[in-house]
Simulated scan of single mutants.
Amino acid sequence: MRPALMALLVLALGACAELRAPPPAARIPAALGAGGADPMRDVVTQAAAAFADGGRSLADDPAAMARAAAQVELMTVELARDLRWAPLPAGVGFELRGARVEVRAALGIRAGADPDEVVRALTAAHLALARRDRATAEAALRPALFEPGGARTLAYLARPGPLPQGRIATSLAREEVDRLATTRVWGLSGALDPQSGWLDPQPGRGMGAGPR
């Protein structure tokens, strides 16, 4: 066997072990994904439902908008950095990055803001709004991440405007995540199958491709 192919097989077997490992739930706030064995799949499913009408149902519901925005931020980075999702088509990451730009523009999230910090802030705002604690929600939307932050950003959450890219990206992510979860790529046979997507002879096609 050629050394290059052997190296690919070793990587594939390592990835297969990752697939059998528990999902990195520590990076996924419980408020964003709950109800199933894999919280990341829950996040994808729930985000697709939230954006199904292009954001219209999120208007006048800042708690729901904060949660949906946090889910987009989380999906964009988590599906790229978690090896379990490496076989997802590159188009999923591309569309999610577009959705993140759209949501950040709608809510005044700073372009260079750290995604994990944004996820935590939006999740805190969502939880505070869900219990009708406006002051805590405003405090979570700090100016270091949000422009201008506080009450003004809270107003943006109530009136985000149309979010068509959010619908496109989350719908595609749900379709591809569901497809991946039901194929044999989740097992050893998939990891060793050149047609499964693990042994991709064309680099740069997986979810890890492209900027964060």
Rank of each mutant, 00 (worst) to 15 (best):
R159N: 11
E147R: 14
G166Y: 01
A128F: 01
R132S: 15
A140P: 01
D178C: 12
D178K: 10
Q165L: 14
A169V: 00
A155E: 15
F146L: 06
L127T: 12
A130C: 11
A121M: 01
T123P: 03
A135F: 09
A121S: 12
P162R: 06
T123I: 00
A130S: 15
E176W: 09
P160E: 07
L127V: 14
T136R: 14
L129T: 05
E147T: 11
D133V: 04
F146R: 05
G161Q: 06
D178E: 15
Y156E: 08
V119R: 00
R174S: 11
A130H: 12
A130E: 13
E175Y: 14
H126Q: 11
L122E: 00
A169P: 01
G150S: 08
E117C: 07
L122A: 02
V119N: 02
T170R: 00
S171A: 15
R152Y: 13
T153D: 07
P148A: 11
A139C: 10
G150F: 03
P143S: 09
G166C: 00
P143T: 04
A173T: 03
L163D: 05
T170I: 05
A155V: 10
L127W: 07
A140T: 08
R134H: 13
A128C: 06
A169F: 05
E117F: 10
A140S: 10
G149I: 02
L145H: 06
D133G: 00
E176L: 09
R159K: 12
P143G: 07
T170E: 06
E176Y: 06
T136C: 11
E117G: 11
A155R: 14
A173S: 09
A173L: 03
R131C: 10
L145T: 04
A155G: 15
R134F: 09
E138L: 04
A173N: 03
A181S: 15
R134S: 13
A173M: 02
P162C: 08
S171T: 15
P143L: 07
A169E: 01
P160Q: 07
R174M: 10
R120M: 09
L154R: 02
R179G: 14
R174W: 08
I168T: 15
P164T: 08
L129D: 03
A137N: 08
P143W: 08
A155C: 10
Y156T: 11
R174F: 08
A144K: 13
P148F: 08
P160A: 07
R120W: 03
P160Y: 00
R152C: 12
E176Q: 15
L157H: 04
R159P: 01
V119Q: 04
P160I: 01
T123L: 03
G161Y: 02
L157T: 00
S171I: 04
L157Q: 02
A128T: 02
D133F: 07
Y156F: 14
Y156K: 13
A121Q: 00
A125Y: 02
Q165D: 12
A181L: 11
A173P: 01
G166Q: 04
R159S: 12
A139Q: 14
R174N: 09
P162S: 08
G161D: 03
R134G: 11
P143C: 07
H126V: 06
P143R: 05
T123N: 00
R179A: 14
L163V: 01
A169M: 05
Q165H: 12
A121P: 06
A121L: 03
Y156P: 01
E138C: 12
A124V: 02
E176M: 12
G161M: 04
A121D: 05
L172R: 11
A125V: 02
D133Y: 05
R174Q: 13
R120E: 13
